[in-house]
């Protein structure tokens, strides 16, 4: 589905990604773990074309995409959910969803507003509320729903649990499992190990712009030294 080989990227002149390689297969949830500043967000932005790839290859469904503009990548069926949520604050919930709308893709699940409200029931009651007047958890749901309106095959999720209350984190995990059930691939960045364990099949650990570990969640769970070294304080 999505494969990244030797990706390098800079932010200004800071060399953030120093050769990242990873893979997400069809119908798989993959977590990209690491402390803040490790380069997780930049990896997702670079895959999406928002931060130019200086070197390396990104392949999505057999097509090289590292030189494409973000809108072209989005139209191939790769969805992106940013960390800062980037809700259009002046637009209502329905309008935010409208901006994300793309025509249906034959081989990907098709989303409508009503299906999304079933997935995120909190949103159903606030269709006409401006994005700027929603809580953090509601905005997080909206930003995911907005990306799903593009009927993607694969979604890049940047820190879906960040800053959310435990009950909302639980709901979020449930929603991500539902997406997997629909057959979507998900590549998510996380700092929250427990959350990742609840949703992901496999994980990579990023540290200082490089991949330090790649394996199943079970492998990660059985290796406490790995967790201590890269994730804990």
């Amino acid at each position: 589905m999505l494969s990244v080989k030797g990706l390098h990227a800079f932010y200004g002149r800071a060399h953030i990604l120093q050769g990242v390689s990873l893979e997400a297969r069809a119908g798989e949830v993959v977590a990209l773990l690491g402390r803040n500043g490790a380069g997780k967000s930049t990896a997702l932005k670079s895959i999406m074309g928002l931060v130019p790839a200086a070197r390396g290859e990104v392949t999505f469904e057999g097509r090289r995409i590292e030189r494409l503009l973000p809108y072209r990548i989005a139209r191939l069926g790769l969805g992106y959910v940013p960390e800062e949520r980037r809700i259009f604050t002046d637009l209502t919930v329905m309008e935010n969803l409208e901006v994300g709308r793309q025509s249906a893709r034959g081989d990907a699940p098709v989303w409508t507003e009503e299906r999304l409200f079933a997935l995120f029931p909190n949103l159903a009651g606030m269709r006409d509320r401006p994005g700027g007047r929603m809580s953090g958890g509601e905005q997080q749901m909206l930003t995911i729903a907005r990306t799903l309106m593009g009927n993607p095959r694969c979604v890049l999720l940047d820190e879906p649990s960040e800053g959310l209350a435990p009950i909302i984190v639980e709901q979020m995990a449930h929603s991500i499992r539902t997406l997997k059930g629909e057959g979507l691939s998900v590549l998510l960045c996380e700092q929250n190990l427990h959350f990742s364990q609840a949703v992901a099949d496999r994980a990579y650990i990023v540290e200082k712009g490089q991949i330090r570990f790649g394996g199943t969640m079970a492998e990660l769970a059985s290796d406490s030294s790995l967790r201590e070294q890269y994730l804990s304080v």
């Binding site: 649990s161 994730l231 304080v233």
Partner: peptide
């Protein structure tokens, strides 16, 4: 002391409820 603090570990690793 900070390394041993349970609160700190919870913040960094996520709480398991």
């Amino acid at each position: 002391e900070v390394r041993a603090n349970a609160n700190v570990r919870a913040v960094y690793l996520g709480s398991a409820h």
